[in-house]
């Protein structure tokens, strides 16, 4: 993830020195981002296995509350961060995109686990979306199957760094003509319509997986059915 450090024009040493004397000087950016990054409220939104690790991260041993992100909101309207924790199937994709659209700005997406990033172990399935970044922009990717709670916490810290790097004056959610609601895909006869949103994601020119392993698993690879009875006579199918 690319981000720049927040360049405050106040010398941090001077600021700390003054803080000891109970004099607080800050820039608007600093205090704005400090407030935002210290209370990232995730959406309570578990899809699959990774959600259990998300719960473990919220529980006593890992304690996500240390980062101000313990308030899992059930409503997307109250959430800042969507943790896509688990396999996104094609049937579920319209709901995920709709939930993203319903979140209020500023909003962030953390793709947790291999499935949410690319389809993971289930990439070959006919009903599995190959990465949620085909439809909504993702800020932080946390790999793993499932990622350990520590990994999720690290992802959250990376997100905090990203939040820190954004400036108040250039914040995109205050700009005019911002397009952060994406059309919700529909369920078609073979899968999703459309297959991806080209404004957000485009297939790679060189796909090593495609050339090396083939594209998908073909169920009809086998041409000879097993015969369970030892008799040599082929069974006629009943009417």
């Amino acid at each position: 993830m690319n981000h720049i450090e927040n360049k405050s024009r106040i010398d941090p040493e001077l600021r700390d020195e003054m803080a000891k004397q109970n004099i607080f000087i800050t820039s608007l950016d600093f205090i704005y981002n400090w407030g935002r990054r210290s209370s990232v409220w995730p959406m309570q939104f578990g899809l699959a296995c990774c959600a259990i690790e998300m719960i473990a991260a919220a529980a006593a041993r890992y304690d996500i509350a240390r980062f101000g992100a313990e308030l899992f909101r059930a409503s997307p309207r109250q959430a800042d961060l969507m943790i896509v924790a688990g396999t996104v199937t094609k049937k579920m994709t319209p709901n995920v995109v709709r939930l993203y659209n319903q979140m209020a700005e500023p909003k962030y997406v953390l793709a947790m686990g291999a499935c949410a990033i690319s389809g993971g172990p289930f990439i070959d399935g006919y009903n599995v979306l190959r990465g949620i970044d085909r439809f909504i922009p993702v800020d932080v990717y946390v790999p793993g199957c499932p990622p350990r709670p520590e990994a999720l916490l690290y992802g959250l810290m990376e997100l905090q760094k990203k939040i820190d790097s954004q400036t108040f004056t250039k914040a995109e959610w205050y700009q005019k003509g911002l397009k952060r609601e994406f059309p919700v895909p529909e369920l078609g006869p073979n899968g999703l319509i459309p297959k991806f949103n080209p404004e957000i994601w485009q297939p790679r020119e060189q796909d090593a997986r495609k050339t090396r392993y083939g594209q998908t698993v073909l169920t009809g690879k086998k041409q000879k059915a097993p015969r369970l009875e030892p008799v040599a006579v082929p069974p006629p199918p009943a009417a």
């Binding site: 688990g86 396999t87 199937t89 049937k91 579920m92 070959d124 006919y126 599995v128 169920t219």
Partner: peptide, 14 residues
């Protein structure tokens, strides 16, 4: 149901 139908059986057969 089916929102987490991730084709376990199809993948396993391959």
């Amino acid at each position: 149901i089916g929102y987490l139908h991730r084709n376990h059986e199809q993948i396993a057969e391959n």
